[in-house]
C-alpha cells in the first residue's frame, strides 16, 4: 500500500492553521475589544484571562508557517512573497501585542501606550491575516517555481472585505471567551457585544460565501455541481445550527456555550474554504502534490508529528485546565 504523505501532511498543516485561527483568534479578539472597555479593572481581567495561554496559541502559527517550509517548500516560497506586505504587517502587529502582555504591568505612566499597542497590534494582525486569506482565495500566479504576480495584487476590495470579516469574527471569539471567563459587569457587557458580533459574523460569512464562487470557476463548480454541491446544503445548515446555539446560550446564561458555538462557526467556515481549495495549496497554481517536499522529508517529520502532536495536545489541554473557570478579579499578575 502506498501512503499518500503529501495528503496526510496537508491535513496536519490544515489542522495547525485551524488550531491557530481559533486559539489565537480569541486572544486577538480580546485585544480588538480592548478599546470598548475603557476601565482599567476590566482591562486587567481581560488581559489576565488570556495571559497564561497566548504564547501557546501563537505557537500554532509557527507550526503552520515553519511546517509549510518543511513539507510544502514551494507553497512557502510562493505564498509568502506574494503576501509580502500583509505578512510583514501581521508580524509587526504581533510584536506590539505580544510584548504588551508583560510591558503593561511594568509601568504606570506609560500604561496607556501599551494598551494601545495591545489593541492596535491585535487589530492589525487580525486585519492582515484576513487580507492574506482573501488574497490567497483570489489565487496566486506562479511561474518557474516563483511568484509571478505584482506587489500590490493582494490589495483588492475582496481582500479588504475578508480582512474586516476576520476582525469581526475574532471579535466574536473574544467576546464569547470573555462571557465564559469573566463575571459581573464585564461579563454582561461582553454578552451584549456578543450579540452584535454574532450578527455581524453571520453577515460576513454570507457575503464571503456568495462572493467567493464568482472569483474562480473552480469554486463555482465545487459548490454548484454534483456531488460536492451536497456541502452547499449541509454547511449552511450547520452554520445556522451553531448560530442558534450561540444565541440561546447567550440568552439562557449558559456561559460556555456561546464560545463553543463560535468555535463551531469558525470550524465550518474553515471547512468551507478547504472544500473550495482542494486539491490546491496555492490556488489555483500549485497542488499539494506539486508543492510537497520529497517523501524522505515528509516521512521523517511525520514520525515526530505523530508522537509529539498528541503530547502537545495533552499538555496544552492540561495548561488550559489549570486555568479553568472564571478569572478571579482579585488575582493579580505574576
Amino acid at each position: 500500500m502506498v501512503i499518500d504523505l503529501p495528503f496526510i501532511w496537508a491535513a496536519i498543516i490544515a489542522f495547525a492553521v485551524l488550531a491557530y485561527v481559533i486559539l489565537d483568534g480569541f486572544d486577538l479578539g480580546v485585544g480588538i475589544l480592548f478599546p470598548l472597555f475603557p476601565e482599567k479593572r476590566h482591562r486587567d481581567v481581560m488581559m489576565n484571562s488570556v495571559a497564561p495561554v497566548w504564547d501557546g496559541n501563537e505557537t500554532w502559527l509557527v507550526l503552520g508557517g515553519g511546517g509549510l517550509m518543511a513539507v510544502f517548500p514551494l507553497a512557502y516560497a510562493t505564498i509568502l512573497p506574494a503576501l509580502y506586505a500583509p505578512i510583514i504587517a501581521m508580524l509587526l502587529g504581533l510584536i506590539f501585542r505580544g510584548v504588551a502582555f508583560e510591558y503593561r504591568w511594568r509601568t504606570g505612566r506609560a500604561q496607556y501606550l501599551w494598551n494601545w499597542a495591545f489593541a492596535g497590534g491585535s487589530f492589525m494582525a487580525a486585519l492582515a491575516q484576513g487580507i492574506a486569506l482573501g488574497a490567497l482565495v483570489q489565487g496566486i500566479p506562479v511561474a518557474n517555481r516563483a511568484y509571478s504576480g505584482g506587489w500590490w495584487d493582494w490589495l483588492t476590495p475582496f481582500s479588504i472585505a475578508t480582512g474586516l470579516a476576520v476582525v469581526i469574527g475574532y471579535a466574536l471569539l473574544g467576546s464569547t471567551w470573555l462571557v465564559m471567563k469573566t463575571t459581573g459587569d464585564l461579563r454582561d457587557k461582553a454578552r451584549s457585544l456578543s450579540y452584535i458580533a454574532a450578527l455581524a459574523t453571520l453577515a460576513a460569512m454570507g457575503v464571503f460565501s456568495l462572493w467567493t464562487p464568482f472569483l474562480e470557476p473552480l469554486y463555482l463548480n465545487r459548490w454548484f455541481s454534483w456531488p460536492t454541491a451536497i456541502f452547499s446544503v449541509i454547511v449552511p445548515l450547520l452554520v445556522l445550527g451553531c448560530f442558534w446555539l450561540l444565541l440561546t446560550g447567550l440568552k439562557n446564561n449558559r456561559d460556555s456555550r456561546p464560545f463553543l458555538a463560535a468555535l463551531g462557526l469558525f470550524i465550518l467556515g474553515y471547512a468551507g474554504i478547504g472544500i473550495s481549495f482542494y486539491p490546491y495549496i496555492v490556488p489555483t497554481s500549485v497542488t499539494i502534490w506539486d508543492a510537497a517536499a520529497p517523501d524522505e522529508s515528509l516521512g521523517f517529520l511525520l514520525v515526530g508529528a505523530l508522537i509529539l502532536v498528541p503530547l502537545i495536545l495533552a499538555y496544552t489541554s492540561y495548561a488550559y485546565w489549570v486555568f479553568r473557570g472564571k478569572v478571579d478579579p482579585e488575582e493579580g499578575y505574576h
Partner: peptide, 24 residues
Amino acid sequence: GPVIGPLMGYEVLSAFFLEAGFLG
C-alpha cells in the same frame, strides 16, 4: 526547505510548544 525545514519543524514540535505550554 526539504533538509532544514524538518529540523525547524522538530524545533517547533519538541521545543516551542513545550516552553509555551509550561510557561503559563
